[in-house]
Design a protein around this nucleic acid. Sequence first.
DNA 1: AATGAATGAGCATTCATTCAT
DNA 2: GATGAATGAATGCTCATTCAT
Lengths: 194, 194, 194, 194
Amino acid sequence: MARQKVQDKEKAILDAAITVFAERGFWDTPTSLISKTAGIADGTLFTYFKTKDDLINEVYLEIKREIADLLMKGINDYTTTHGKMRHVWNYYIAWGVRNPIKFNVITQIGTSYPLSDEVKVQAMEPFAEIERTAKASIAQGEIQDYPVEYLAALMDSQSVLTVRFISALGSSDADLAKYQQIGFDILWNGVVAR
Amino acid sequence: MARQKVQDKEKAILDAAITVFAERGFWDTPTSLISKTAGIADGTLFTYFKTKDDLINEVYLEIKREIADLLMKGINDYTTTHGKMRHVWNYYIAWGVRNPIKFNVITQIGTSYPLSDEVKVQAMEPFAEIERTAKASIAQGEIQDYPVEYLAALMDSQSVLTVRFISALGSSDADLAKYQQIGFDILWNGVVAR
Amino acid sequence: MARQKVQDKEKAILDAAITVFAERGFWDTPTSLISKTAGIADGTLFTYFKTKDDLINEVYLEIKREIADLLMKGINDYTTTHGKMRHVWNYYIAWGVRNPIKFNVITQIGTSYPLSDEVKVQAMEPFAEIERTAKASIAQGEIQDYPVEYLAALMDSQSVLTVRFISALGSSDADLAKYQQIGFDILWNGVVAR
Amino acid sequence: MARQKVQDKEKAILDAAITVFAERGFWDTPTSLISKTAGIADGTLFTYFKTKDDLINEVYLEIKREIADLLMKGINDYTTTHGKMRHVWNYYIAWGVRNPIKFNVITQIGTSYPLSDEVKVQAMEPFAEIERTAKASIAQGEIQDYPVEYLAALMDSQSVLTVRFISALGSSDADLAKYQQIGFDILWNGVVAR
DNA sequence: AATGAATGAGCATTCATTCAT
DNA sequence: GATGAATGAATGCTCATTCAT
């Protein structure tokens, strides 16, 4: 038996990519720098990812999955829409602030890289639960009857902004807590029916 | 006369850059394509912009200035905070929907290009008036006492999202009007004191 | 038994190489494709052929040997020079037309690959009988007194051309017969003493 | 006015390519070696030839044109088919023997490179006159009624072989004269009606 | 012996920038 | 100032070969 493709190595490449992408932006990052950072030979990268494009898509998916796992984990401990959304909001903001590198990388890729449609779809899937919750809430007249897609996009964009804001302030626990609160209040007050 | 010609050429380069950046993303756009689109020789571009980086920064500033001019123009026709903000909001959304090329270019540059600090500062300046308005409003207890910088960032991110949303729907006048309304309502309800 | 297996594998590699060389030209054929076609692992190829160069040389020899076996087999059924040459000519042309893949591969290698001298010599050996026949014929005054090496080369080049010509026409039996005849007539009339 | 593309430089690249192609075969020749040999920067090669493929096709055409010019020049000094063909034969053989490098390169490219159809057609054009002569001769019953395409191919392949043979012998004037004679005699006797 | 992951030199091509004209 | 040919470093990816398993 020859050496087997090791998951460790794939992971190492992904991690290296995330690190250097965060530092220099992926447009400016040669694959050779990723290999070097991962501690492997230039050619080896391509046994794990057929092209640089594949690697970027995979980096994106990997991080999205990590986020989804985190956010969906405790979500059913809550029964109210407010509770569920608050949970998602808080965890996402906290994750973003605590993982600034990964956070930068997904937002960067998301906004300025032509991801494959397949990947886009896969990246959305895990968040379906949130949309379901929102729809139910609208149906009950709890939150206003705005198109859910707009609300989803809104929540996403506002969370990104909030993470960036906290990061710019220095990512202290106090700021995290403060803007988790402010951000969510604005969002909720903005959409709740009254 | 000669002066005129020169300014024309600079403008031509800037316009060409915006066009091709929108089409292919600026990371993927060689300066030679910009020159060609502008109808000038490859080398000439560099007598107007010392480096490609300078050009990108200038493109960004140029568009930001255009937006600022537009938004600030009629702002003092309104006396209330609500009126002023609504005016800014509506004009910005409409401008974005009607100028998708320029809109894409600034958001693209803004999120994935390392702009010089100087340019970032210059780009903010024209929007100072809005911040002043917001501060006054907070002082009067009209809108809640949240940090203005956060509010400014919020308004910005939400408007970008809204433009994108309308564009994705096809940019009809009806959608424009609808989401101008929804978006502003959510924003205002989110921050207003009650 | 194990011996058998080994020989089978070497044969499998050679066959695979011929197939893919014919399809894509050997300059454009990675050894990995040969391994894959042969149903073995990349590394295994190199236990049978030390380098790609060795493999190419061996492919060449293998095919040359096959041709030699075929041509020399019935040659002594004929007693006249004309009969012997006609036999060789006809069989070679027919073999080339019926085995276009192998035919292409040897001509391709022969004209554009730097074969080792040793291989060149080995490839010639089996055709010695033909040269002997020609020499005898010259001695008897049957064919003209031209250097045999030139005659041998002539016969070779003309047969290659003839095979290619028939192949280009579609390799029908009628064309095969027709150009076997024409080609040989020209050749024989060209060299026969009168 | 900027520096203009100089014909000298294009010529220098073509010459360099021919030289190194002859030495190592074009499959094994990196463009960087051609540039170096031509005394230009790596990138410059691509301002004259868009791709390596273009360069190879152009090298082929260039040499074919040179040959055509040479062969067609004095051809109409002769009135008989025999005279015309002899002229073409002699000049071609002599050119090949005196220009072994170029000669190797065209035969190499011709037999093992997938030339564009357009180039193949262009390369044939100048030799149309020869085919016309052959056809006329057949019509008069001077040479046998074999398909002209076959005859053309035959003449070509036999001349290549003859050049190679003379070259292998050392390219002396004596050998040149001797095999010009032998080769043509065989060819003519092979096809002439009797 | 067989496997196939690992290696890293090598390659065609691109492109921002320079500079002779 | 304008031009566009020249430059050469940089890049994504390939592939013959090695070698740990």
